[in-house]
Design a protein around this nucleic acid. Structure first.
Lengths: 333, 333
DNA sequence: GGTACTTTTTACATCGTTGGAACAACGTTG
DNA sequence: CAACGTTGTTCCAACGATGTAAAAAGTACC
């Protein structure tokens, strides 16, 4: 059924290797033979067996991308960009979901054998240092925050600075009771954004209060809504909130609306990630907009360099740009 | 560097095949040898070369999933569910994006050689009958609407009925000027939803008018907003709108709000897809909620049956369930 | 025509794995 | 103890492709 090099060779009346040479663009093939082989290729509809080729070449042509969940807009958008960037370099992308649990993350990381993929882009959520495979297995690039210090390539925006930028923006509007939603000690990203939040408060001359920082196990919309409700129920509710991602912020918007308060008049809200939906929420969400395209391309670039040579390169730590996208949730219409 | 069966065999002092037998759970291996092999496996950290194994077995362990764009929430959510369902059956999923263009769709479909993946799930947007590969290449399952009639497995909800349900709901609220957003003659889905819209109008005793049907090339939020603005600018604006997907509806919500009108009092809105974000929009969106999990599982099931035998099975056409999710955009708070 | 060189083609081994058959060891049975 | 079935192990070929090196064909020059 399937056509192999041998079939083509028989049809063209040459050896298997000559066909292989034509397929791979080897220069020294007699024009006459090349023509016959090409005809035979066309006639049979030959397509190389990728598995066999890779077995021989020691490459697979696949990259893995590990993310918590594709249904989370940030990861859906990022995955799309990664796939596009990988495709330009001739790679196909295999996606693994971990639900953000440490056990699934470890499992996934471990299962990424050197034969399955040429390299992997991982966006860990709960991994710890000990979980990382011995270096030298396959090229690994980490996306987003590392909770821990491992000598592995890493691409992300400056989370502390970004959080600081967001909160400074709120302070610059004259808000004095600025809350935060999203604390989660188990996640590196959370710690970094919290640090930026505290830095911004202090440089604005505002004092930090634990009661203004709401925890959030999962950074989902419903959690943001619940957190916002509890913040608003306190004795001295906030007049602004920095949410650690857009989903929390979208939830917060709803909680505010349900209590009959207005955004931004009563409470200003800033998110983080710039999900596509955030430009269309009512009111539209002010948010930190990471350059996701740059992120995806930097990551693919890095893994490409690792795979093609540069073994000795010390672990890179690349920061990609971000911007504060000011919209209605802090400035009104 | 990499550990092969041979290395393990040498260490354990048995033949390669015996190690292979242990790895593959062959029953008749002397306990003593089994123990030694297992120790050697653990000591070396052996991991099978998937490529070689597949070359031998004639399977790849990969499925392809072709979608327009992962950044579109519906596809992000669906892809996540497909990956989960595939994983249960031991498959990894390779994602290809087409941007919904016919040329990229053809290209992708063609490039899915029998060696690259065991089967493919495709969600075409613009493909025509002629574009489909000769049957018998690799198992192909189509998701969502087929614009054309090809003898290929197909899983989707009943789009006509779903659209009819949505519009009947609007009619049952007493709305009489029910518009639609999303007409696009090039897309099968659009035609089906339009058909359902017309059926519902007629069974409610309402007349169809072209001026109430807004076209939409891309079903994105901004397009929905623009379409809604133009509908509202007409002489006799609608009092309800059926949007062909949630993104259009989200855009429509914004357009209504910007004109100072209220949803649902002035205009009721129904969407389609039940994206996660639609439960949190302000107001929350009434929408058709397809059972995406059922869809993903039915598709994986089907491709699994095709791959493991059932070659003779005639092309299946499976309908998965949906529900009308009634929320604030048609019923108020 | 012989030599030296270049171009073109081929045979063969190989990548890591598994299926199948052959073989060896073993205990049972007649 | 020969014949036999049952277990357990090994050897060999094969999956489809490519790298290597050697063979074959062609060209140029003396």
């Amino acid at each position: 059924m399937t056509v192999t090099l041998k079939d083509v060779a028989t049809l063209a009346g040459v050896s298997v290797k000559t066909v292989s040479n034509v397929v791979n663009g080897y220069a020294f093939v007699k024009p006459e033979n090349r023509r016959r082989v090409e005809e035979a290729l066309a006639a049979t509809g030959y397509r190389p067996n990728v598995g066999a080729r890779n077995l021989r070449r020691g490459r697979t042509g696949f990259l893995a991308l590990m993310v918590p969940e594709l249904s989370i807009p940030y990861f859906g958008e990022l995955a799309g960009l990664v796939i596009t960037a990988a495709q330009k370099r001739g790679w196909s992308v295999l996606i693994e979901q971990t639900q953000g649990t440490r056990s699934r993350e470890r499992e996934t990381l471990f299962s990424l054998g050197p034969h399955l993929v040429d390299g992997a882009l991982v966006h860990p959520e709960a991994l710890e240092a000990a979980d990382f495979p011995s270096p030298g297995e396959i090229p690994l690039v980490m996306l987003g925050e590392h909770a821990v210090d491992v000598p592995i390539d890493h691409v992300a925006i400056d989370n502390v600075l970004a959080a600081q930028t967001a909160v400074s923006h709120l302070a610059s509007l004259g808000r004095t009771r600025i809350a935060a939603i999203g604390r989660n000690p188990a996640r590196g990203t959370s710690s970094q954004r919290l640090a930026g939040y505290r830095e911004a408060l202090s440089s604005a001359g505002l004092s930090y209060s634990d009661t203004l920082v709401a925890p959030a196990e999962k950074w989902h919309r419903s959690v943001g809504a619940a957190a916002m409700r509890s913040l608003l129920a306190s004795d001295s509710p906030p007049d602004a909130v920095f949410c650690f991602n857009d989903l929390l912020a979208i939830g917060a918007l709803r909680a505010v609306a349900e209590l009959g308060l207005r955004v931004p008049e009563d409470v200003a809200i800033v998110g983080f990630d710039n999900n596509e939906e955030s430009a269309f929420s009512l009111p539209a969400l002010t948010t930190i907009a990471p350059d996701k395209t740059a992120l995806a391309e930097a990551a693919i670039d890095l893994v490409h360099r690792r795979i093609t040579g540069d073994k000795a390169l010390p672990p890179q730590d690349i920061q990609t740009p971000f911007a504060l996208e000011i919209r209605e949730s802090t400035k009104g219409r």
